[in-house]
Design a protein around this nucleic acid. Structure first.
Lengths: 214, 214
DNA sequence: GTATAAATTATTGTTGACAATAATGTTGGA
DNA sequence: TCCAACATTATTGTCAACAATAATTTATAC
């Protein structure tokens, strides 16, 4: 038989939709018609439907009764709010990371930072940005606070569209590398206050960049 | 006709379920059978079903494929994580509140604080706790950050079960009133740093109370 | 030609039946 | 008695048809 493929279940639809929204394949304000999505994904309408309900709760989709779902547009104002929340939460994460850091953690952080420097000097913005993400994730993981991690993950998926804009802002990576170096240094010194402070400074700069952009 | 009542729609099911979980009518780990809920609420199974999917995303319910949904149990460890996140976020809120405060806001805060003192002296814990909630909400509202407000609201509904325990801890309200007074004072002074600091101190004490409890 | 009302269409919401799966209970054999 | 295989039951997942609603188009009057 040629087409053995089974239909996507709800969880798979959820993941696929989330990815397509985050990647921008489904654009903000785009109307999400259940039957169309079901056909194009190879899924049942029920699966799509509940997936959309979950995505609404997650803030990626808006639904209106009898009027369907659309990709939620994150306003500029909201992008700033999200960044403020990120600052508070990643500040907490950096603090806890400094408190909890093991010697292995230390090594991982330094490795990432080292890699970062290389890509920074090679002017490879894409890979630099990748290191950036990994460093932040590492600190969050080190904090041990899974609740904070989940909230941050949700917020990130809402604002991915904006993130890459700031990254590509000219001149940004320069200070950004120094910021990260300062954070890692504070964590390695096991200095929670300094770690939080450094993280706040870093995200504060990004926030200013965002304000300028608008 | 005697029974004019129309069935509950999805949104209503969602709200009802959320309330029943938060109030403890539906207990942690309790198995939530779709058909049973549908009958007892007077709703269709589909409405219950999608409501449960949304509540899963919100962290109030756990679902497992082919095994149904149950009320999620928030562990003690998690309650602490949530309180840490609250500290970071309400610290931010207090800071912003101090930055944004209008004269009217000032009046409202002082009114609540005054009421609080009365109930404190009358030893009316329930009404005292109510003022507490209102004060925190007011500060969050004053911060103007709707994203933070939403996150805090979600986290609160997850940990309501734990909250009332700490409130009823003997000796807690004493310091608690002083804490709130300090927060309000800093906000009225328009001193963001002090406001954040005071809020952190306040929630830090509650966190210690929680740790003692475990 | 324009504005209002009616008819049509597209889409979502709901229902009931059935399939898939996991949990439970039962039987038969050592 | 205990265990394994099988049968039964309860519950969830899925589908297709239909009802309810909103959006769109057409028809009508002025």
């Amino acid at each position: 038989m040629l087409n053995e493929a089974t239909l996507l279940n709800e969880e798979e639809c959820y993941l696929r939709l989330k990815e397509d929204i985050c990647r921008g394949i489904l654009m903000p304000n785009q109307h999400l018609v259940e039957l169309d999505l079901a056909k194009s994904y190879g899924a049942g309408r029920a699966a799509i439907r509940t997936a959309l309900a979950r995505l609404e709760q997650e803030g990626l989709v808006e639904r209106e009764r009898y009027r369907g779902a659309r990709v939620r547009l994150v306003t500029e104002e909201e992008a700033i709010e999200i960044l403020e929340v990120r600052t508070a939460l990643e500040g907490l994460a950096a603090r806890r990371a400094a408190e909890n850091a093991t010697d292995e953690d230390e090594g991982v952080l330094q490795d990432i930072l080292h890699e970062m420097k290389i890509y920074y000097e090679a002017n490879d913005l894409l890979k630099y940005s990748d290191c950036n993400t990994r460093l932040h994730h590492m600190l969050i993981k080190m904090s041990g606070n899974k609740t904070a991690a989940k909230v941050l993950d949700t917020l990130n998926s809402q604002s991915v569209r904006f993130q890459y804009k700031t990254i590509l802002q000219r001149g940004r990576p320069d200070k950004s590398y120094e910021d990260h170096r300062a954070i890692v240094e504070a964590v390695i010194r096991r200095d929670p206050d300094a770690a939080e402070q450094a993280m706040r400074l870093h995200l504060g700069r990004i926030l200013n960049g965002l304000r300028d952009l608008f």
